[in-house]
């Protein structure tokens, strides 16, 4: 057997991880932009509470976050039971649950990045756009959004990277089921616990390195494209 050939099980873990990380990143994008702008611009009661809630997964031990998700979104949890009964969505011990866990863990990173870029936008440009006849929605789409694009891209990459490496919350919430919830990190951990699993663990480690490098380079390239478009004075 070729040393670098991946077994089916290993392929599944790679494939699954990419799918979970992409879904987690894309699903948190719109709420991330919304909360980022709300925290940067909003003035409302309970803003610091929202800020605390968003940042909680960054500070709590991942296992605790996973356990909280299990309590809330498990089949008998208040939200999980509702979703299962009315919408037929089951999250616990499914890959969708893993995506939820990864999304929650990456959310503070995404919100932080977007919030900082929103705070850096010169609001006087928005005033100028409005006096030229642009309604608030158009001002957002034609001025604010293009100016915060670098922050959004950075937030997406951070969220994706976090999802790629997520371990504690995922394993606590959806366990480590090969083919369903076993991500790269969980698979590598599993292989290191099995006698003779070192070769497989090493192969997956190499793949993680390649994927991480590719994501990093993609983000650099996108930042370059955006930077070339937006030349600040």
């Amino acid at each position: 057997m070729d040393w670098f050939a991946l077994s089916n099980e290993e392929w599944t873990a790679v494939h699954l991880t990419l799918r979970i990380a992409s879904v987690a990143m894309l699903a948190s994008l719109i709420p991330g932009i919304f909360v980022g702008i709300l925290l940067a611009r909003g003035k409302f009661w309970g803003k610091s509470i929202l800020n605390g809630l968003v940042h909680l997964p960054l500070i709590l031990p991942p296992v605790v976050t996973g356990f909280i998700l299990l309590i809330l979104f498990g089949r008998r949890g208040p939200i999980g039971a509702f979703l299962a009964e009315y919408l037929g969505i089951v999250l616990s011990f499914r890959w969708t649950g893993a995506a939820l866990a990864c999304g929650v863990m990456g959310f503070p990173l995404m919100v932080r990045s977007i919030r900082l870029s929103v705070e850096a936008v010169d609001r006087r440009l928005e005033d100028a756009a409005a006096t030229l006849g642009a309604s608030p929605a158009w001002v957002f789409l034609t001025v604010t959004l293009p100016l915060i694009l670098p922050g959004i891209i950075a937030g997406m990459i951070l969220s994706f990277a976090k999802a790629m490496g997520e371990f504690g919350a995922t394993i606590t919430f959806v366990s480590n089921i090969p083919g369903e919830t076993q991500t790269l990190s969980a698979a590598i951990y599993t292989f290191t616990q099995v006698p003779g699993g070192d070769a497989a663990a090493f192969r997956l480690t190499m793949i993680s390195v390649v994927i991480s490098m590719a994501a990093l380079m993609a983000s650099e390239f996108m930042a370059y494209l955006v930077g070339r478009r937006v030349e600040f004075e």
Partner: peptide, 13 residues
């Protein structure tokens, strides 16, 4: 009422 501001405020993007 279009406004011309002191600092120009051109859209950098």
């Amino acid at each position: 009422f279009a406004t011309v501001f002191q600092e120009g405020r051109l859209f950098p993007h």
